[in-house]
């Protein structure tokens, strides 16, 4: 059985907000390592890989690996019944036809209990090859969200160019064009806002802004985001949390 108690329930609410528009149903794979999820969107253009490590829960117990098939919209509706400061406990039996959720307020005088019906999901697991990326950009997650939103006004795609000087996000559309360049500035006072670039080789890649904007729903989970790129391979957008991560992979756009 699974029993996982999350002191900061708001984290789970934020995680659901970050994935529920990209994918509708997914298996939460529970093991002694923690709770993981991997799913592609319907069009197979983007993939979400989530890990909530066991040490983020107190206590965490999972005797046998379990796959909990969840409709994410339903789960996020139930999670809306939890207060932001509530402690959330997830429980499931080995037969796993329901997921039990308990929300306790911080005064411990209000306890709400919900059960969510689970479903059988035939999901194919994808082997994500270990990749050494040609360019890795680390930047403020809020800045990345702003750039994606701003450029979406102009186009449905963005060209990302990374050189050792900086990273340039450019968009061209019917009404005109726009570009935002962030210079590498590792020694700024505010570490959280620094743009850092590790570069083996300059890259220039095109991606759909609709998906990137969707990924930025993870912004409340981390102040930093990393963009890992190599020519003609999927972009990896990673938000690291205290005990885990949410990674998004996005297939590039190619051709003229």
């Amino acid at each position: 059985m699974l029993e996982a108690r999350l002191q900061t329930g708001a984290l789970l609410k934020k995680v659901l907000e970050a994935i529920k528009e990209l994918i509708t149903d997914a298996n939460f794979d529970c093991s002694d390592n923690g709770i993981a999820l991997q799913a592609m969107d319907n069009s197979h253009v983007a993939l979400v890989a989530l890990l909530l490590r066991h040490d983020g829960f107190e206590p965490y117990r999972c005797d046998r690996s379990l796959a909990l098939g969840v409709n994410l919209v339903s789960l996020s509706k139930v999670l809306r019944c939890a207060g932001n400061d509530d402690i959330i406990t997830l429980k499931a039996d080995d037969t796993a036809d329901v997921l039990s959720l308990t929300f306790e307020n911080t005064d411990n005088d209000r306890i709400s209990e919900y059960e969510l019906k689970l479903m059988d999901i035939d999901s194919e697991h994808l082997g994500i090859p270990d990749t050494t990326y040609e360019a890795v950009v680390q930047m403020s997650s809020a800045e990345f969200a702003r750039i994606c939103k701003d450029l979406q006004v102009l186009s449905d795609s963005v060209q990302i160019d990374v050189t050792k000087e900086g990273v340039k996000f450019g968009a061209k559309g019917e009404l005109g064009s726009g570009a935002v360049t962030l210079k590498q500035n590792g020694n700024v006072d505010k570490e959280e806002e620094a743009t850092l670039i590790e570069l083996q080789q300059n890259v220039s890649l095109n991606f759909s802004l609709k998906y990137l904007v969707n990924f930025t729903k993870a912004t409340p989970l981390a102040s930093r985001v990393s963009l890992s790129m190599s020519s003609e391979v999927p972009l990896l957008v990673e938000y690291k949390m205290e005990a885990g991560y949410i990674r998004y992979y996005l297939a590039p756009k190619i051709g003229e």
Binding site: H44, V45, L126, S157, A251, P252, G255
Partner: peptide, 14 residues
């Protein structure tokens, strides 16, 4: 015109 690729060609089904 740019074409949107999919992930299928990059990641192996296991």
């Amino acid at each position: 015109q740019q074409t949107q690729t999919t992930l299928d060609s990059f990641f192996d089904s296991t």
